[in-house]
Every structure is written in structure tokens, then in C-alpha cells.
């Protein structure tokens, strides 16, 4: 669309700018402020330079949390994206059953995150939960409160349960936009099912799948509530990902310097990914 140059449009953006700036810039300045200072209480602060940053970047605790974070994010993406595409391809395209599928599939997305955690806690309890009891009944030793492997399995399964539908909905929206004529042409050409997927459906879904991958990447990167309610970051520290560690340092231990330095490193990482997301989607639109 051709846009008109008009600087008065700033007035229409001002209210948004004001309210988001209040929420974003003031807190961010607070965090930056804390990240370079130390305090002995009574509001007396000392300038510390980059001490907290070097401390955080060198600490094993941060490395551990970061590593667990990347492991979680990579596993989630590797499962949810192919699964979501497969479901979108096989679900009914139109009619009553399509609506039923959409409504049921969207349901997990609308459940408060702590309820998701609590629900999976109840579901996975080894003695009375369906999942925990079932696995133990099958002879698989399972107890997410004691074994790190079980805890990880549950956290990942919970996220697949919670967010695969997002990928399904996006892929479904992409498939909906394909003209019926493409399929007819493919049929006349005698194209195989794979060829239809590879050369018609996948290119049409490219754009929405980029959105799906980046959204899932970023949301899993800041995941907090669900694993916190489910495992509390345990057993031990085994499921403590970045956000959990950060909240522990900030609100649990009131370790302001360390927490703020972590916040800034964390924020810069998400900013980088966000920039990638923006560049890629904008390019997609220009094409």
C-alpha cells in the first residue's frame, strides 16, 4: 500500500507511546541503575561499574540456567513445529468439524498459566494422577518431584500440550489461504501427496511458520509460571530456567545487582531475536 508522508500522524501514536513508555522505559532505567550499583540498605548506593555483569557472566548458576533454557527451547521447537504442521494438514478444512477442532484446540491457550501448572501437577502425581499412575502402572519408574528426568519429561510434555495448538492454528490459517485451483492443477499433473506438500502447501505456510517458530522461541524463552508451579525449578535446580532463576534472585533473595545484570543480559538476548523476527516478517510482507 502506498503510504502518505504525514508527520501529524505522531499525534495518533502519542497515547500508545506514553503508556508503553511508562511501562517500559521507567522500569528499564531502574534495572540499569541497579545493575551498576551496590547498596548496604538505607537507600545508600555505590557505583560498581561492570562488577555484577562479570560476576553473572562468570557464574555457573547463570551458565546452568542458560543451558537448561536452550535445551528446553530447542526440544520444544523440535516437537511442536512438525507436530503442529502434521495436525493442521490432517484436520478438516471446513464445516462443522473444523469449528469443533478449532474451539477444542484453542482451549489450552486460554487457561491461566498457573492453572496449567497446577493441572499438570495433579495430572502427573505418581500416586493419584492419570499420567503418573499410568506410567508407573506400565512399569516405567516415574516421579517428577524426585527424578530430574521425569521432571523434564513432564515440563516438555506440558508445553507441547499447552502450545502446539498455536502452531496448528497458524499453519491452518496458512493452508486456508491456498486457492482450490492449485490442488486441482496438481491433481491433473498427477502430483504425489509429498509433492503437493513440498511445492504448494509448504511455500504458502512459510510466512506463518516463521511467525510460529519465532513466537514459540520467544515465549518459551521467557517461560516462567508453568514450570514454576509444576516443579518449582526442582528437583534441586534441574528445571530452573532463566526466568525462574531471575525471579528467585530478584524477589526471593533481593539480590538487586545480580538480578538486574541478569535482566539486562536476558533482555538483550530477547531483543536480538526480536530484531530477527521483525526483519524476517517485514521482508515476507515486502515480497
Amino acid at each position: 500500500m502506498v503510504k502518505v508522508q504525514n508527520n501529524k500522524a505522531w499525534f495518533m501514536v502519542l497515547p500508545v507511546l506514553f503508556i508503553v513508555a511508562l511501562n517500559a522505559i521507567v522500569p528499564l532505567m531502574t534495572v540499569v541503575n541497579y545493575s551498576v550499583q551496590d547498596t548496604f540498605g538505607n537507600n545508600v548506593f555505590f557505583f560498581e561499574g561492570t562488577r555484577w555483569f562479570s560476576e553473572v557472566l562468570a557464574s555457573e548458576r547463570f551458565h546452568g540456567a542458560l543451558l537448561r533454557q536452550f535445551f528446553l527451547t530447542a526440544t520444544i521447537l523440535a516437537i511442536e513445529i512438525p507436530l503442529g504442521v502434521a495436525i493442521a494438514l490432517t484436520m478438516p478444512r471446513t464445516g462443522f468439524w473444523a469449528s469443533v477442532c478449532l474451539v477444542l484446540m484453542a482451549l489450552p491457550l486460554l487457561i491461566p498459566w498457573n492453572v496449567v501448572g497446577a493441572m499438570w501437577n495433579i495430572y502427573a502425581l505418581p500416586d493419584i494422577g492419570l499420567l503418573g499412575y499410568g506410567l508407573n502402572w506400565l512399569g516405567i519408574p516415574y516421579d517428577f518431584t524426585q527424578q530430574p528426568v521425569s521432571a523434564w519429561f513432564t515440563v516438555i510434555l506440558m508445553d507441547v500440550w499447552h502450545w502446539t495448538s498455536l502452531v496448528v492454528l497458524l499453519a491452518y490459517a496458512g493452508l486456508q489461504s491456498i486457492d482450490e485451483n492449485y490442488y486441482r492443477a496438481a491433481q491433473i499433473d498427477g502430483a504425489s501427496r509429498w509433492a503437493v506438500f513440498r511445492f504448494i502447501q509448504l511455500p504458502k505456510m512459510k510466512h506463518v511458520l516463521t511467525i510460529a517458530i519465532l513466537l514459540r522461541f520467544m515465549d518459551s524463552f521467557m517461560i516462567y509460571t508453568e514450570p514454576f508451579v509444576l516443579t518449582g525449578g526442582g528437583p534441586g535446580n534441574s528445571t530452573t530456567v532463566l526466568s525462574i532463576d531471575l525471579v528467585k534472585a530478584a524477589l526471593g533473595e533481593f539480590n538487586l545487582g545480580v538480578a538486574s545484570a541478569m535482566s539486562i543480559i536476558y533482555f538483550l538476548m530477547t531483543l536480538l531475536v526480536c530484531w530477527l523476527f521483525y526483519t524476517i516478517t517485514m521482508q515476507g510482507e515486502r515480497e
Binding site: 511501562n23 521467557m222 530478584a250 524477589l251 535482566s263 536476558y266 530477547t270 531475536v273
Partner: peptide
């Protein structure tokens, strides 16, 4: 970028 900002970063401020 604010949509992508982790809420955990902003909790204390």
C-alpha cells in the same frame, strides 16, 4: 520489543 520482553525482568521495577 515490549511484546517480547520477559515479564520476569520487569517484576521488581
Amino acid at each position: 520489543t515490549n511484546r517480547m520482553a520477559p515479564p520476569a525482568v520487569f517484576a521488581l521495577p
